[in-house]
Amino acid sequence: MKYGYYPGCSLERNAAAYDISTRAVARTLGFELDELDDWNCCGATEYIAINKLAAYSLIGRNLALAQQQFHANGNGHLAADGRAQLIAPCSACFLNLRKADRYLQEDAKLRDTTNEALAAGGLHYDPGTVFVRHLLEMIVNDVGYDEVKRHVTKPLNGLRVASYYGCLLVRPRLGGELSDAEYPTELESLTKTLGAEVVDFPLKTHCCGGHMTQISAEVAYELIRRLLQNATEYRADVIVTICPMCQLNLDAYQTRVNQHFGTNFNLPILYFTQLMGLAFGLEPKTLGFGKEIVSAENALIKIQRSPESAAAPAPSRPRKKKEEGLPMPRMPEDEEVTA
C-alpha cells in the first residue's frame, strides 16, 4: 500500500521523534509513505480564524499539490472511491486539511476565490479529490489490529499506558472513521494489541490547551495539570499521544506545571508510533527516544528495553484483589480476555 504523506512543520522539528518512528513503523508494516513535494505549513490552529482567504489558500496549496502529485498519476495512492489518500500524522494538520476540503466542497464562492489565489501559483484544487486521513485511523482501519499483532515481537508487558487523543482528531467530527467522538477506543485497542496494559483515562479527549501557553499560561497550565493528574491517578507509566501539539504541551510544560502547582508529575509523553516500534522490536534510538524532555528511561527499564534494565527487577503482575462487595458489570472487553 502506498500513501501520500504530509508530515507538517512539527514533525520536522520538535516532533521529529514522531516522524522518525512513523517511517520506521511504516517500513515494518510494509506500507509506503510518499512525501508530498514542496509542501507548506497548514496554518496551524489560529490562522483560519484570522484571515480566511489566506488560510484556505495556504491549506489549499497542499491539497492542490496532493491532487497534482497523487491523484492525476496516483498509482497506488488511491482509495477505493478514487480519491487520492493523504496521510497526516499531526491532528492539527489533519483537521485543517480535512476541514478545508469539506468547506471548499460546500461553499462555491470560497472555492472560486481560493482557486483564483492558487492560480497565481499555477495550481488548482478540485475539492473531494483528496482523502485526508489521520495516521492512527489509517493504521487501525487499513492495516488492522491483526496485522499489527503479527509484527509484535517484544510485547510491552506491564507498561501502563494512558491513551490520549486530544480534541482535534475527534472534533468536529468531519469524518466517521473513528468509533466515537466523545469516547473513541481505537488507540486503546491498538495499545492493547502491543501488549501494554491500558488504563482508564477519562480525560482522553479533553483539550491540552493548544497554543494557550503563549496567550494565557495559567489557563494552559490548569488544562495540562488535569490531564497529568488524571493519568497519574490511574497509575499510568506513560501517556501516549497522536498529536505533536499535545505531546509538546504535556512534555515541555510538565516542569512548569510542577512549579506552578507544587506537584511532582513525572510522566513521559510518547507517540503511539514509538510504542509500536518498541513492540516490533526496533531499537529505542531508531524511534526517536531521548528527544523527549521528561525522560522515558523508567518506562523503558520497566519493559526491559533499556541498557539499565538488567538491574531492574522484572515487573510482577499485581495480584488480583479478592472480590468483595457487589460485582462490577461485565464489559465486552472482559469477555474477550477471558474467552
Binding site: 466523545e182 469516547y183 458489570p329 461485565r330
Partner: peptide, 20 residues
C-alpha cells in the same frame, strides 16, 4: 448503558443502572 461510554457505566464502580 455501556453504549454511552461517557456515562462511565462498567468503568466507574458507583454508576448503577436503574435495574441494578
Amino acid at each position: 448503558a455501556r453504549r454511552i461510554p461517557h456515562y462511565g457505566y462498567g468503568r466507574l464502580a458507583n454508576v448503577f443502572t436503574s435495574l441494578e
